[in-house]
Amino acid sequence: MSVQIDVPFTPAPSFRSYLILVTAFGMLIPTFFFAFMVFAITDGMGGALAVMAGIFVMLAFAGGIWAYLYYGTVHYLLTPTEMTWGRGVLWRQTGIVPYNRITNVDIIQGPVMRIFGISNLRIQTAGYSANQLAEIKLQGINDPEPLRAVIMDFVRSGHPVAAVTGADVAATPASGPSQAGQAADAAMLVELREIGVVLKRIEEKMQ
């Protein structure tokens, strides 16, 4: 995918179909639970199967509607200093992750996701990586390598490399010591010299 800075982007269209399919099949678990309860009460396999089929159709339909709506709420944004995300149908969630907190970006692709040609990017940060947990996931990315390259380049150097990834950002000069960093080094050097003078005076008095 072509990554553009300060331009929101959404998951691949195939992610919607993936969500609908996975959500629908995920309804099998509560369906079997309700069917088992009916079978235990009525002691009849036919009634349990009929209830199971009805519940599955109802839950699969509701799950498919939710997945369809959920896809329309997911969006991501890369800026020169941080990445933001938002999603949620009933309960809206948004977040901001500065690049200086990111420690690693992993690409995750399961067998079903491979069929749909999509992957997830798992973003690990300093506060989460110790437990091998992801603070956020960029879901439904059809070409994850360029996106990961842009994010990791921000993490390493503070500006992306647009030549390979297609990121639409202005080139920045090679990083060097900032003026603030130089001032801090100079102040530290002065303090060390003063400490040296004090230690020399103490040594002279002890002799």
Rank of each mutant, 00 (worst) to 15 (best):
I55D: 00
Q182P: 01
E145N: 12
F116L: 02
A167F: 05
H75D: 10
P98S: 05
A53W: 12
G88K: 12
T165S: 10
P144G: 03
F32S: 09
I141W: 02
A170W: 03
V190M: 01
I65D: 12
G26Q: 09
Q109Y: 02
L28S: 07
G46Q: 11
G47N: 11
E82Q: 14
N142F: 04
T172W: 01
E191C: 02
N142D: 15
L133R: 12
G166L: 01
I118E: 06
P173H: 08
A60F: 05
S178K: 08
K200Q: 11
Y71K: 07
A24P: 06
P146F: 05
E203Y: 04
N104H: 12
G86E: 09
M113P: 07
D168S: 13
A186P: 00
F32T: 03
I96N: 12
M45H: 06
V112P: 01
V198P: 00
M27A: 14
L78K: 08
F154Q: 14
F56I: 07
T84K: 06
R148N: 05
R148K: 14
F39G: 02
A149C: 02
A183Y: 05
P146M: 07
A67M: 09
G95T: 10
I107S: 02
L192Q: 13
G196I: 05
R122Y: 02
Y71D: 05
E191T: 11
M83E: 01
A183S: 10
Y99I: 10
G72V: 00
A53L: 15
G140H: 04
Q139K: 11
I151L: 09
V169L: 00
N104G: 01
T81K: 14
M45N: 02
G158C: 09
P8N: 11
Q179M: 13
G196Q: 13
F61S: 10
T84N: 00
L147Q: 10
G54Y: 04
I202W: 01
A60E: 03
A24F: 07
F61P: 03
I29C: 01
M83W: 02
P13V: 07
V3R: 01
L147T: 12
A170R: 10
